[in-house]
Design a protein around this nucleic acid. Structure first.
Lengths: 301, 301
DNA sequence: GGACATTACGTGTTACGTAAAAATG
DNA sequence: CATTTTTACGTAACACGTAATGTCC
């Protein structure tokens, strides 16, 4: 009655990478093995899960993905959770942070306070993409995750199944505009999010909020990417915006290093989007009482 | 990196049954196989999960159980969810109901309405224990589940990972007292839940709300079971209460068949327990639009 | 034709059952 | 001493790799 978790994992990899061979490389299998695994899964469920060439999930496959991802996340969480019980209490803290979360949340300042209270604590901050944060925390590669993203103000925090999420900061959404951009003058005059749907956007899943969230909030098909930045560097993203490659959003209040070459003149203009805020969330599994991670979480909340 | 779901399933069975051999019988394995599976799991996680003789989970095992149960539930849900996508739209409705939910919720009346609107619909109501309801719904053995239980009034509905839960009825908690019970006269005079902590209680996990919930709400160690009823029959439970075997709770408003022999004289006295209500919840997975299940859920909400 | 997925086939691992031993209450 | 779990061992299934075949841009 159980679906083999192993098969689920390769299915997720294939779906994510859009390729059997790429998934095989990532998972250290041969293509043939991956092909057989997918075939086995499809045979087990008696449904086609992937369309080939191009490789993309069918409707049933999409549905399965919605289950598989949280299941695998939770399996990782279960393992690290149980194993951690035997491990000696760590005098170590690893925080996985999304770049914007690091910039705009009080986390780094709080971390400094923590270090004065626990001077010998071994602290590591790992920069991760939004997608990696939950995974790293679930796997136990990080004790805590700190992510940023767009959400409806009234949205409950996302139920990351095994993980808890607590909001630590919220900000108005702002658009980053290059110097002299025609929209810049409207400034605080209440720029509407929907006005920007047809602009050229930068898709930067590693750093910026998801364009899909903008679409959802605006209820349009706009916000189409004209440029894709695959990195995780805030300065690079700002530079791209400054050079006019496209628009991007950031939490209003993000400090802009306008004294840097190529970034000068960039402005962040708050956007009127009643159904949208930028929120920073702290995610974590079970925090051993008295652990540095628990202390840090308490200080941040 | 994944723990074998197969091993998880037998681990859960062993923990639940408190026996390797019993689990083997249930899962159609030999004892030896179960022993090896548990050994494999413990070796994989490098932690002892079960103490033997008597067989009970260690601390790490308990932690693993907290993950394993939802994981397996979700795996079942994933399978039935995906498979259902290929199946033809069912002209069939299976509802898994907890006994008290059937008695006090408007569900059966609503079901009657539904049948007048869809006369040819094949309807089945399955009586289940509280524990079975979610499982049956997740597996797809039932289209909908209807459970009752105690909750804090402000409690969010429990996040059953893959399943949605929506409250359909709430009632004050009442104690069932036999005729002439000394507490009966206090009647509406505001009986306190905490007054009853030291009484003798009937533990009837198949029918009555969990005593553990009472303990949690009262913040005491009381509400200790003096009698255990393993069945799922409301009348039997009432009879036991009437005969003075112990106390039990029920939602205030539960119709009492006081004209039946052995039950006459029983009264339900509302209990003042500010942090506690009896709530009936409808649980379901993805409901295909237009399906009988979706229609029923809409009528009930 | 080239990149990519599928099928065929051989092999090593593993996961089970049978049976015997150990352990515990 | 009886019950229950563990260990030993043989076998059968299976999951993977290699290699050949098929298929789509």
């Amino acid at each position: 009655m159980t679906v083999d978790a192993h098969l689920l994992r390769t299915f997720v990899a294939v779906a994510r990478l859009g390729s059997f061979s790429a998934a095989a490389a990532e998972l250290q299998y041969t293509q043939a093995a991956v092909s057989q695994q997918i075939a086995a899964l499809e045979a087990d469920l008696k449904v086609q899960l992937l369309r080939r060439r191009p490789v993309e999930p069918t409707e049933a496959g999409t549905r399965l993905l919605e289950h598989a991802v949280p299941i695998l996340l939770r399996m990782d969480a279960a393992r690290s959770d149980v194993i951690r019980m035997t491990a000696p209490p760590a005098a170590r803290l690893i925080v996985a942070m999304t770049p914007l979360a690091a910039v705009i949340s009080p986390a780094l300042a709080t971390l400094a306070q923590l270090r004065t209270r626990m001077p010998r604590l071994d602290v590591t901050v790992r920069a991760v993409s939004r997608a990696e944060a939950a995974e790293a925390t679930a796997r136990g590669d990080a004790d805590l995750g700190l992510t940023d993203g767009l959400a409806a103000p009234s949205d409950p925090l996302p139920a990351l199944a095994p993980l808890s999420a607590v909001g630590v900061a919220e900000a108005v959404v702002a658009v980053i505009l290059p110097a002299g951009h025609p929209l810049a003058p409207r400034g605080s005059a209440g720029l509407q999010l929907s006005d920007l749907a047809d602009a050229r956007w930068i898709d930067a899943p590693g750093v910026a909020p998801e364009l899909a969230d903008l679409r959802r909030a605006a209820g349009t098909e706009g916000f189409r990417p004209a440029f894709r930045y695959a990195g995780t560097d805030v300065l690079t993203l700002l530079r791209l915006a400054a050079e006019g490659h496209g628009l991007t959003v950031a939490p209003f209040g993000t400090p802009l290093p306008t004294n840097l070459p190529g970034i000068a003149g960039v402005t962040a203009v708050p956007v009127s989007a009643p159904r949208l805020v930028h929120r920073v969330e702290l995610i974590h599994g079970t925090l051993p009482a008295g652990s540095p991670a628990a202390l840090f979480a308490a200080m941040l909340a």
